[in-house]
Nucleic acid binder design. Structure first.
Length: 851
RNA sequence: GGGCGGUUAGCUCAGUUGGCUAGAGCGCGUCUUUGACGUAGACGAGGUCAGAGGUUCGAAUCCUCUACCGCCCACCA
């Protein structure tokens, strides 16, 4: 294979990935002397396409995994696929709808099988996309969330919770979507602030007391009046507390309901009287529990008023019922006013239907003991968070967490392994024979619960399920996922992990923010601003996407996608490619020598820079500072290696060192740009094996003084170039020096890098021309006097600038506080710098006066 | 109502424990057809680090307040 002029990612990426995969490079090495390093991939939806967020998540995880693999750890990156219960079900139900069918046309088992086939038709796509992103994951360990081992573990956990009394079945108010016909956990409900109305309605007292004839309640939902079973006042409220125990006539009905005293009634709000509808409002439900109030359900699961609402209202939607109630109340003179308010309304996160709190029998987890344990562990600092602030946010959330409803009324998911006695609805048993609608136990018939688990109940167990075949890999090293999943997923993994394994599921958590569109807007299909990562890959390459995504991005912060960053990254890959092309060329033409000898300034210097970068890179990656790490390697490759070292080596042509340094650079760059680095490795004539399997570089030996000298040379050369650019005309003038060993030894190099005509050594009495403003050197551009005069303004600027710098330093040293209190080295350094600058200024001024 | 985060160059953003001349990419200006790369090279311009106060020898960085902008949680009838 040869190096083409530009790097064409598409030409190599699929083959390179196949090479890795076939060779088994993604499998953990299981080396007994090495440390395990484990990342579990948050499983993408099995039947979905990857979005740009997956691009980021895989980039971050794969950088860590490849880095640790190079460091010699037993790196294990475990891929997954999520059956995504509700998400997938919504997609499938839409498809049924388009065929004119509904879920009620089939049995649950039928539907399950249909969706199973649907998902398996789609599934390969997602996996191909993960490959295109370069994820070096162990495909043999791929776990699908409906694999038998997952279901077994989930059932085991359910059983354990059952036996420990942490699972209960109860009729409670649940968040119900009347379109999707299923309940949700609290966290799945999207709350939106909306404009609404607050109506005041009079409830007449049955018996006038102390001159009070009626109570006025305020409500945003007049239609629920039909289900009221009390009105509440605050027991401390002197206006009303002597009415407690009296009855009011419930308008629109012939019922009489009691006035009760309860703290829930806020004296400050409205009239201080609140209607209580235990069957349709969470607060009222709790009031109802405290006061043993009857619960009257007036809204059915279809979202329409039911028979309890009375013949006038039955069959109406809540919206229609609301209008009718208001109209009748108005006619009866009981509607006493309305005010505009803004209040928060729960919506289904998929279809936006208003979530109806409805009474339903469901399985709940008593989360309190689980949450308390998680809080304890978090407070002890057992799990490190990035960003750190997320830890407290999670603790706050867990502290107020309510019991978790894990039942879902959808057929796609893990069936709940519970059966009820057909003769006795309170007799539930645990049994895993969920493929049978009915079972017989001890002569009694039990019917299967047709509900499935909340997907997060199984995902919450992901770390110990996926690592079960290699126990040393649990707890996993780091959980890298989106910041939006802190409560939904991370919190639950911690709770369930502690409960089932007595250990935290991971040692650290890294959370990335959302990738927004270029304008900083959230991406969504409806806005049409979605960026497809695979399109970016095919246009710029997988590495460019990866580098572009991690650039300038810090933990937990939402940030816009930037095409210009992807382009810059693509250019970097091309740069690396061309460095390879040049080095290969030099190697081909050079003589055989494999001994690495560091004998030029630039060589000491590049060895030092590589060592420094390697050390710093390790530190940054261990602290999850991906963007800074990316910048650092960029700077090494482009600004140091290519711009200085390679330029110098065009003269020295030390092929052994070129080979060695370039290999080190490829290794360090590999986690960030796996494809181009491996492609280069496979293309170079002398490299063996695969880059992915190499070891992190060992530091070079070099001479620090030599490296420092090269820094001086850089300053000198830069100054010369700067003058060439600023001087009138395009003429390049000789660079003369006096009493300057560095210059003496590097004449050739200076000529090569500045294109100056010559580098003469001169005597003291020959000094003339323009002194370079480089401390500790006597270097002069030999420019004619007339040019020198024309250039006067520029020189004055330089002298003034130097003067300002000196003033700053002097002011600092004038302060006795600074001299006494600042660290000694710092003060010493300031003094030295000042002296050098003063010396230089003196010389420049003296020489300037000749003009 | 509670909590979290942001405000740094024209744009998008970095800036770890306070330290000397505040960085990057893109954009901008001038120059360069040097056989690795024009997806390039060289040089350069551009910042009162939102505002006010405080701590400190020293603050973009720590503390307090203010303004504006986001996000999350919460049962406000």
């Amino acid at each position: 294979m040869k190096f083409s002029k530009t790097y064409e990612p598409n030409q190599y990426e699929p083959d390179i990935y196949a090479l890795w995969e076939k060779s088994g490079a993604f499998r953990p090495k299981d080396n007994p002397d090495a440390d395990p390093y484990t990342i579990v991939m948050p499983p993408p939806n099995a039947n979905g396409n990857l979005h740009i967020g997956h691009g980021l998540t895989i980039a971050l995880q794969d950088i860590l995994i490849r880095y640790h693999r190079l460091k010699g750890d037993n790196a294990w990156y475990i891929p997954g696929a999520d059956h995504a219960g509700f998400e997938t079900w919504v997609v499938y139900e839409r498809r049924l709808e388009s065929e004119g069918k509904t879920r009620f046309d089939y049995s649950r088992d039928d539907l399950y099988n249909q969706v199973w086939n649907f998902v398996h038709e789609q599934r390969g796509n997602m996996e191909l996309q993960i490959r295109a992103l370069g994820a070096s994951c162990d495909w043999e360990s791929l776990t699908f969330t409906l694999d038998p081992k997952v279901i077994d573990t989930v059932y085991g956990t359910f059983e354990k919770l059952w036996h420990d009394g942490l699972i209960y079945r109860g009729e409670k108010l649940v968040n119900f979507c009347t379109k999707h016909q299923t309940a949700f956990a609290d966290i799945e409900v999207t709350h939106k602030d909306e404009k609404g109305k607050l109506w005041q309605i009079a409830y007449p007292l049955v018996k006038e007391t102390h001159g009070v004839k009626e109570l006025i309640v305020s409500t945003t939902r007049p239609e629920t009046l039909l289900g009221d079973t009390a009105v509440a006042v605050n027991p401390k409220d002197d206006r009303y507390n002597d009415l407690i125990g009296q009855m009011v006539k419930l308008p629109l009905t012939d019922r009489e309901i009691p006035i009760i005293g309860d703290e829930h009634a806020d004296m400050e709000y409205g009239t201080g009287v609140v209607k209580i509808t235990p069957a349709h409002d969470q607060n009222d439900y709790e009031v109802g529990q405290r006061h043993n109030l009857p619960m009257i359900t007036v809204i059915g699961y279809d979202g329409k008023m039911n028979a309890n609402a009375g013949a006038n209202y039955e069959g109406l939607t809540t919206e229609q019922a609301r209008r009718k109630c208001l109209e009748v109340l108005k006619n009866q003179g009981l509607l006493r006013g309305e005010t505009e308010i803004e209040h928060s309304v729960g919506h289904c996160y998929k279809c936006d239907t208003v979530i109806e709190p409805l009474l339903k029998e469901q399985w709940f987890i008593n989360v309190k003991p689980l949450a308390e344990r998680a809080i304890k562990v978090l407070k002890e600092g057992k799990i490190k968070f990035h960003p750190a602030s997320k830890k407290q946010v999670l603790i706050n959330y867990l502290s107020q967490l309510k019991d978790w409803n894990i039942s879902r009324q959808i057929p796609w998911g893990i069936p709940i392994p519970a059966f009820v006695n057909t003769e006795d609805p309170t007799d539930w048993i645990f049994d895993t024979r969920v493929d049978q609608p009915e079972i017989k136990v001890k002569g009694k018939t039990y019917r299967r619960d047709n509900d499935t688990f909340d997907t997060w109940f199984s995902s919450g167990q992901w770390p110990y399920i996926t690592t079960s075949s290699r126990e040393a890999h649990y707890p996993t090293s780091v959980m890298e996922t989106g910041a939006d999943l802190l409560f939904q997923w991370v919190g639950r993994m911690i709770m369930l992990g502690l409960y089932v394994t007595n250990d935290t599921p991971f040692k650290e958590v890294y959370m990335h923010g959302m990738v927004l569109d270029e304008k900083g807007q959230k991406m969504s299909k409806s806005k049409g601003n979605v960026i497809n990562p695979i399109e970016v890959v095919s246009k710029y390459g997988s590495d460019a996407l990866r580098l572009g995504l991690i650039a300038s991005r810090s933990a937990g912060v939402n940030q816009a996608f930037s095409t210009s960053k992807v382009v810059a990254s693509r250019n970097l890959c091309n740069k690396l490619w061309n460095i390879a092309r040049l080095i290969q060329d030099l190697v081909d033409k050079g003589k055989e020598s494999d001994e690495v000898v560091v004998d030029n300034l630039c060589e000491d210097w590049i060895c030092r820079e590589i060592n420094k970068t390697s050390k710093e890179l390790q530190k940054l990656l261990e602290h999850y500072r991906f963007a800074e790490a990316g910048d650092l390697i960029y700077d090494l490759i482009w600004n140091k290696y290519a711009d200085w070292f390679i330029e110098c080596e065009k003269l020295w042509k030390d092929t052994a060192l070129l080979k060695s340094t370039f290999e080190q650079i490829l290794i360090m760059m590999h986690p960030f740009a796996p494809f181009v680095t491996e492609t280069i490795w496979q293309t170079l004539s002398w490299t063996e094996g695969m880059l992915i399997n190499q070891s992190w570089p060992i530091p070079y030996k070099y001479d620090e003084a030599m490296a420092n000298h090269f820094d001086e040379l850089i300053a000198i050369i830069t100054d010369i170039r700067s003058h060439y650019q600023a001087l009138p005309g395009a003429q390049k003038y000789p660079v003369a020096f006096h009493d300057d060993p560095l210059m003496y030894k590097n004449q050739l190099l200076i000529q090569h890098l500045t294109k100056c005509p010559c580098v003469p050594q001169i005597n003291l009495n020959e000094i003339k021309g323009l002194r370079l403003a480089v401390q500790g050197h006597n270097i002069y551009l030999q420019i004619p006097e007339d040019i020198h005069k024309k250039y006067k303004a520029n020189l004055e600027d330089r002298i003034l600038k130097l003067g300002r710098e000196i003033e700053t330093l002097e002011a600092r040293l004038r302060s006795p506080n600074y001299v006494q209190k600042a660290p000694k080295e710092l003060v010493e350094e300031t003094r030295n710098t000042l002296a050098e600058k003063q010396d230089l200024l003196g010389k420049m001024k003296a020489e300037f006066s000749y003009i």
